[in-house]
Design a protein around this nucleic acid. Structure first.
Lengths: 349, 349
DNA sequence: TTGTACGCGTTATCAG
DNA sequence: CTGATAACGCGTACAA
């Protein structure tokens, strides 16, 4: 018989002697038919092995797929292994899941340079982090809902964290005990790729391009207040927030002659600060006596080790939740700003 | 005009004065029409803002969506924040991406207890970790390709790591210097939830149910060879591989009176071992003099701190790649076993 | 090499 | 409350 082919709604209707519309209603609009009939249809359906309306056909017909795509600025490999991005994703997933939606993962750095066609099946898009090429967003269905996180797209809602005040706050905390030589380690702040010392030749990205610029502005404001001329404070830059990339830059800093080596390092991320912590320990530097360190993010790894990291905790999960709620229309799609919290650990008491 | 509605293939065909088949061929089968005509069609298409065949309609017609779903045994929140699961996912994503496929994330612990309908749009399924309820898999399209990782489904291909020999190997290494009191910390090994000491009353899961049982068998084999009766070696169990859940159990172990406290702890995961490391340091215990520790997984966090963890490195990323290649039919879908590597750090030299 | 016609499985509309 | 029918947008035999 028709044993090979999957059973369809139409087959079931014929089998039951009712119309396809009625079967469809039994699954989608209980109020459109008598409970008795509905019971019978659902019962027979599961007996005959009909699993319910086909998702592909349904999505063609209704125009919606109940799939939400997250487009990550970085590669999937990097993002999935980055605690902050992962937390964001888990916030998104939590809300989508509760609403019966699923999560499609995309990266702006796809193999072919453009998104796979299947991407356009999504009902909405959450864009996390600055896209390397703006063109990519043009390939998306024009009228699909879109929310960005940690950067802005003209005319679109976004979710942010109060980067500038947060960094002002943590720098102020650190500067209460005046350092002899403060230093700053940035993350992807220069227009030109740069792994190492930032010189006046480098052009810095603007605050609308990257959150790390906002963070730097906060640091500088606090430094200025504390009597340090910002342009006298040495800065280093790191291109990628991973140990292998951070290590040489930080090693270079720690291996400076003692009279040049910073005794306070304000870092743009916990990953950077933790790498500095590890490398400092290996060199026998005492934390915080010889070197004080601050981070940003508040990732678990920084809190579950000793010394604990002094850092700014951002609720990345909540950022994801909000983005997801906006996409689903659960909350109004308007710019949102999350507060952060200063965490004082032993790395900079 | 028809400015509100998205342009369709049919619209474009009419506009160009060719048939829909020709336009379709221009996108899908370049060999079916003259290069000149194809150029013209593609050119006009992008000029008129036609983005190519609609993914939903195409998937209905062809039956394939170019979406692969990964079903995670744990919640998405947990999995996304777990380095080992994240690495697995990034391996999957890497291969899918290169093949023009996308990744749909599902969890066996969805809100409603069953998978959302959109899940069935996937062309294939990768199941990671033992499903809490086997029924869930019955709801999947019966003939869709399916590969499991880290556990087995009858009649389906799977990807594994050589858990038993790996654990035999690391235990042997640790036991070369005989401990006075060895101990084992398991991960979700008991049928009944148990956070703490494992007693004879507990029933252990079988090796076909969980990889941690295979690991335990490896530990026991080495212990026996070293002259320790396995049932005399104390075991603890932990229900979830996170700091908050591990902490009380491990604190309980470390706070035992000195003559009962283990001086060697074989841990089922790096997360557990790292938690033990942190808690031991906080108590002033010297590693490895007072306490030696081994882990499993080889996560970055364990290698980028000091003391480095002695552990078994499993290539979780490669596990993901292989699963993805099997699903896509790039390699034969047959059971696969990956080798591991012993890493000797300072936590158990 | 190009065009015609049908069907993929569903849902919305509207008439009974 | 129920049923017939027309889309949804596309791929592909098959005919020209």
């Amino acid at each position: 018989m028709t044993h090979s082919r999957r059973m369809t709604l139409k087959d079931l209707a014929r089998e039951l002697g009712v119309s396809t519309a009625t079967v469809s209603n039994a699954f989608n609009r209980p109020d459109q038919l008598s409970p008795a009939l509905r019971e019978r249809i659902l019962g027979e359906a599961s007996r005959l092995g009909y699993r319910g309306p086909d998702a592909k056909a349904r999505s063609l017909r209704t125009g919606r797929s109940r799939i939400i795509a997250v487009i990550l600025a970085e590669s999937l490999t990097y993002s999935l292994n980055d605690p902050v991005a992962s937390e964001f994703l888990s916030g998104v997933a939590e809300v989508l899941d509760a609403q019966g939606h699923t999560l499609l993962l995309l990266s702006s750095r796809q193999a072919q340079g453009l998104l796979p066609g299947s991407a356009s099946m999504a009902d909405g898009f959450i864009v996390y982090g600055l896209m390397p090429s703006g063109d990519l967003l043009d390939t998306l269905p024009a009228q699909a809902p879109l929310v960005s996180a940690d950067f802005d797209i003209a005319g679109r809602p976004s979710v942010h964290v109060d980067d500038e005040p947060a960094c002002y706050g943590i720098a102020r905390h650190a500067l209460r005990r005046p350092p002899r030589r403060p230093g700053i380690i940035n993350l992807r702040l220069t227009a030109e790729p740069c792994n190492g010392r930032v010189t006046p030749d480098h052009t810095l990205l603007g605050p609308e391009q990257t959150i790390t610029r906002s963070r730097l502005i906060g640091f500088h404001r606090a430094l200025e207040e504390a009597g340090f001329a910002p342009d006298q404070v040495p800065m280093w830059n790191i291109e990628e927030n991973t140990f292998p990339v951070c290590e040489p830059v930080i090693a270079g800093i720690l291996d400076l002659p003692e009279e040049e080596r910073p005794d306070l390092l304000l870092c743009m991320s916990d990953r950077i600060a933790l790498t500095a912590l590890t490398l400092a320990e290996r060199r026998g530097l005492r934390i915080p006596e010889d070197l004080r360190l601050t981070g940003f993010d508040g990732i678990a790894e920084g809190q579950y080790r000793s010394p604990r990291l002094t850092t700014v905790r951002q609720d990345s999960t909540e950022k994801g939740r909000i983005a997801a709620r906006m996409i689903l229309g659960l909350v109004p799609a308007e710019p949102s700003l999350l507060a952060t919290e200063l965490i004082v650990g032993e790395s900079c008491p």
